[in-house]
């Protein structure tokens, strides 16, 4: 594989939240083009890594982003909205669409001044959203809310998309649809994807980074990782099934996930 230029680089990034040391020196590089999958067990620090890029949690170490003009920006010390305006889109773990706003208002809100707004592209990908544009987002199903969250990403011209568990809690059919849309988006924009569903990872990831206990324990080609069941099991606690089915191939049980999610949301509040 030819070396693509780096887009996002984290070096020795530490995050401490209310007494716990969550990231303990993360080093990773996302190269321009393709999809980099950020993998790891629950509580390994995937979401915190994404949040540290956006400045949603305070971090130490170095986080650098190379913009479209080739200039490299240090992200720490910038406010979240300034980071985003460099061309970084974010779809958070729990979608976080604005339930009290209509679908159309959710999209209008996402329009950024530094970018053109591609409402046509979004409605082309998700015709359902156009039909429901006057509906309150809070009354949408989980899958439809995820479409709104992804639509917000694709509305603006971005250099990098940070997508955190886009298929979480979705029915298999919707998982496939979301994966389709992201795969199409990946043709134009680089994606850093946090994903537990290894079928989705297999489908689109070019690179993979595995974190465990706040550190990067493996980085390399995603197909190479998934081709090695022993290593996958060792790193993620689950073996990749070879198949085309989507759905239940996830890296850990729902019960632990619930637990970690509640812990994380409190950490999120602290950093919010």
């Amino acid at each position: 594989m030819s070396e693509r230029p780096p887009l996002l680089r984290l070096a020795d990034v530490h995050v401490r939240l209310s007494g716990s040391h969550i990231l303990q020196g993360v080093d990773l590089t996302v190269r321009r083009g393709g999809v980099t999958a950020l993998l790891g067990r629950n509580g390994a620090g995937k979401t915190t890594t994404v949040k540290s890029v956006l400045g949603l949690v305070p971090s130490s170490g170095t986080i650098e982003f190379t913009g479209g003009d080739g200039r490299t920006h240090r992200l720490q010390g910038r406010r979240t909205h300034e980071v985003v305006r460099l061309g970084i889109g974010y779809a958070p773990e729990d979608r976080e669409v604005f339930g009290g706003l209509t679908v159309a208002e959710n999209l209008t809100l996402a329009e950024r001044r530094d970018s053109a707004h591609h409402h046509d592209r979004v409605y082309d990908l998700f015709p359902e959203l156009e039909q429901r544009s006057r509906q309150l987002a809070g009354t949408l199903s989980g899958g439809q809310q995820q479409m709104v969250a992804i639509a917000r990403l694709l509305l603006n011209d971005n250099q990098l998309l940070l997508v955190d568990e886009p298929t979480k809690g979705l029915a298999p059919l919707l998982v496939a649809e979301v994966a389709d849309v992201l795969a199409r988006a990946a043709e134009e924009v680089t994606i850093l994807l946090v994903e537990q569903n290894l079928t989705v990872v297999r489908r689109m990831a070019t690179d993979a980074v595995v974190v465990d206990q706040g550190r990067v324990v493996w980085a390399g080609s995603a197909p190479e990782l998934l081709a090695d069941p022993d290593r996958t099991r060792e790193l993620l606690g689950v073996a990749p099934s070879g198949g085309a089915h989507t759905g239940s191939e996830r890296a850990s049980s729902p019960t632990t996930e619930q637990h970690v999610r509640s812990r994380r949301s409190s950490a999120g509040e602290a950093g919010a």
Partner: peptide, 11 residues
């Protein structure tokens, strides 16, 4: 509704 997400949209 969600101050943090507003900033994460670049506002």
């Amino acid at each position: 509704e969600n101050r943090t997400m507003v900033t994460a949209l670049g506002i």
